[in-house]
Design a protein around this nucleic acid. Structure first.
Lengths: 202, 202
DNA sequence: TATGGCTTTCTACAGATGTAGAAGGGTGGC
DNA sequence: GCCACCCTTCTACATCTGTAGAAAGCCATA
């Protein structure tokens, strides 16, 4: 019962993420997860007995997937072997954002829902851990580039970029901005990120 | 039945907003609203028969309150009668953000929850209307200051500022940043907004 | 005071949801 | 072949939720 095999865990939590993206936190129920994952009724309830456990599993899954994504991008950046030129970096970040707006849309949506959930559900704070890590990396990057107050600026930078993402996903930008996945969108995101980066470095 | 008096509407939707902030969208039920508002059981259900109606009423209320807030701030700014110096403007925006993080915390939280909800619930799009309006005003401001591409930059600016707000409310910033309502928080927010403004104007 | 039309309050009920435990089925050891 | 064990699937049930309609209360008019 308690021993959740990795495949089972992935199947259940991925279904859960899809549900959250489609119907919101309210759509996340044991039975709905079963149906969505194409598993026999009662499965989610057996592996993740309480709803809290279900939500925590989702958060864990999102954190894992995001961390994996970020690591993969980092490796790619490392292979290039160049010092991080702001414009190149902006393009890379924009590409990541665009990916999270298209392929990873469901997960991104679920992530924001979980962040909101974490507000009144302390045990979910682990989801924030990698967010904090991202801030540290941004700060290190700014420090390496010689910016003043890298910690503070790094934090602001990540928050602003995340705001851009949220805006395109669920805010007014989802109406007015070019649809994600298009070259225009990519260019627009790149311009925005570049401006933010330059502001952080000034 | 259908005729909801303004007081009733306010009492019900304010209770609903508090519930969303405390328990998330999942906590928003007719009966919980009744209890929270101290009204007899069945009231919310009588005035807002379906759940959809309940959510739409909440969204409307949030839009009304935010619009009222923004108008009040604008009047204040108008009374000062000065051309918008970026640094002054940054301080004002920071003050607004700080207010939304403390006094208006519940409403801000509920707003983000509703934005997420609007993703899979088209009828909620009206909540976005005033967001779009804010963008226009930012764009006009940037245009007046002679910035290039004011529309695009205005949109990015608003998104970034909103990201800062979300971060302080529910993101990693809610852990690392100085607690809202303090002078440090205000100073930090001002610095962040000022940087964003300068980036938009450059 | 009686009457008609409201607003407000209460009640009913079908269906969904969270949670626990029972039943079923396969696998390895003996 | 048999047994014990664990993983999986199914079932039960108290509670919660959405929704509709009935009952009660209020107020002005005639």
């Amino acid at each position: 019962m308690a021993t959740t095999s990795p495949e089972r865990f992935a199947a259940l939590t991925d279904a859960a993420i899809a549900l959250i993206a489609e119907l919101g936190m309210r759509g996340l129920t044991h039975r709905a997860v079963d149906a969505r994952a194409g598993l026999p009724a009662g499965t989610a309830s057996a592996y993740l007995r309480t709803r809290k456990a279900l939500v925590e599993a989702v958060v864990q899954r999102i954190a894992d997937l995001d961390t994996r994504d970020l690591a993969a991008r980092d490796v790619a950046a490392g292979e290039a072997g160049t010092a991080p030129d702001p414009d190149v970096l902006a393009a890379r970040v924009a590409a990541l954002l665009d990916d999270w707006l298209t392929t990873g849309r469901a997960r991104t949506l679920a992530r924001y829902a979980c962040l909101l959930e974490a507000t009144h559900h302390r045990e979910l704070r682990p989801i924030l851990a990698y967010g904090v890590a991202m801030r540290s990396r941004a700060a290190a990057l700014l420090a390496a580039a010689g910016a003043s107050e890298p910690d503070r600026r790094g934090s602001h930078l990540v928050a602003a970029v995340d705001g851009l993402l949220f805006d395109r996903l669920a805010g007014a930008g989802s109406l007015a901005a070019p649809p994600p996945g298009t070259p225009e969108s990519r260019a627009d995101l790149t311009a925005a990120v570049r401006a933010l980066l330059h502001a952080a470095l000034s």
